[in-house]
């Protein structure tokens, strides 16, 4: 029994990590340019098709495959900023969100037109599918690696935000972009870096997502990104620690539901999770780590 509980806890951490990676990318972009980037999910899809096509042209080395997938989502994020989001930079929240929504529909349908609607099998490194024994207990390698990778990624991000000038500028820009520009920091650079980071994190998450699913289809990015957004709202929209916390909580809650729900109610898991989160938010509308908007701040 303890073994089962421990295994489920690692599982919960892994799922939470996936949401945290995605939520973190969303929160970085949101905190700096106030963009609710619904097209974030399509970065996962881009990674998936990158894996699919590179395997199709006989890229065999698993590390190279991973690198290609992450590179593609990172570049795609930067490209989206340049092509679509730069022209609406100082527009209202809704303009940004609806643009992202439109961009997301366009990308999905480009894949429908040029690839196909039906899922394509995607290869991820075989070692991720193995089982590892730690202290006499058996865990899927995927879950352990995912949790560790996420921890490393978060740590690296913290270092970047605390000890580089661009990191300081990003933190400062979340509250007051104009004054950051007064310091001689180029707005385009701060925003590009934010998108690059969000794409990088999405790419890392994508590798794990595809290890689980094994296939990519044009519309698959939506549900993970919606969960990541819900995680952001739980933690407090725009707060980076909040995104990580919200992601972990949501992931753990889902695994918890999976464990306790009877088999015939399992199909309702997402509906129950969202409803419970909604109820909590009626009580804490700012999220767990959110701060109230003050006069002079950028409005949420």
């Amino acid at each position: 029994m303890t073994e089962y509980i421990l295994q489920q806890m690692v599982n919960a951490l892994a799922v939470g990590s996936e949401y945290a990676l995605l939520a973190l990318g969303l929160a970085i972009v949101y905190s700096i340019v106030n963009l609710v980037n619904f097209a974030h999910g399509e970065l996962i899809t881009v990674s998936g098709y990158a894996l699919f096509f590179s395997a199709a042209v006989w890229v065999q080395n698993p590390w190279l495959l991973i690198a290609l997938a992450v590179l593609c989502s990172t570049l795609a994020a930067a490209a989206l900023e340049r092509v679509a989001f730069r022209s609406i930079r100082n527009a209202s929240l809704n303009t940004g969100m609806l643009t992202a929504f439109g961009v997301s529909i366009i990308i999905q349908n480009v894949f429908v037109i040029f690839v196909a609607t039906r899922p394509r099998a995607v290869q991820t490194p075989a070692f991720l599918a193995e089982i590892v024994t730690i202290g006499g207990l058996r865990f899927p390698v995927l879950q352990v690696v995912e949790t560790l990778t996420t921890a490393v990624a978060i740590l690296a991000l913290v270092v970047l935000l605390r000890s580089t000038t661009i990191g300081l500028a990003m933190r400062a820009a979340a509250r007051d972009f104009t004054t950051v520009r007064l310091m001689g920091v180029r707005a385009n650079r701060v925003i590009q870096v934010a998108f690059l980071i969000s794409g990088l994190l999405a790419g890392i998450a994508a590798v794990f997502i595809f290890s689980r699913r094994g296939a990519v289809d044009p519309f698959m990015g939506f549900v993970p990104v919606l969960k990541a957004f819900v995680a952001c709202v739980i933690g407090g929209l725009g707060s980076l620690p909040g995104a990580v916390l919200g992601g972990l909580l949501l992931g753990m809650f889902e695994v918890f539901l999976q464990v306790v729900l009877p088999a015939d109610a399992a199909a309702y898991r997402d509906a129950i999770a969202f409803s419970v989160v909604g109820l909590v938010l009626v009580l804490y509308p700012q999220g767990l780590l959110g701060k109230r908007v003050e006069l002079g701040d950028k409005e949420a």
């Binding site: 609710v36 969100m97 819900v230 309702y268 009626v282 509308p285």
Partner: peptide, 25 residues
């Protein structure tokens, strides 16, 4: 109650969650 309590962006994200809840049901 949810839509009227949350801030704009959070409320908007949650309307999408409502769509998913309905579809799941």
């Amino acid at each position: 109650f949810l839509v009227s309590r949350l801030s704009g962006a959070a409320a908007e994200i949650f309307t999408l969650a409502l769509l998913v809840i309905a579809y799941v049901v």
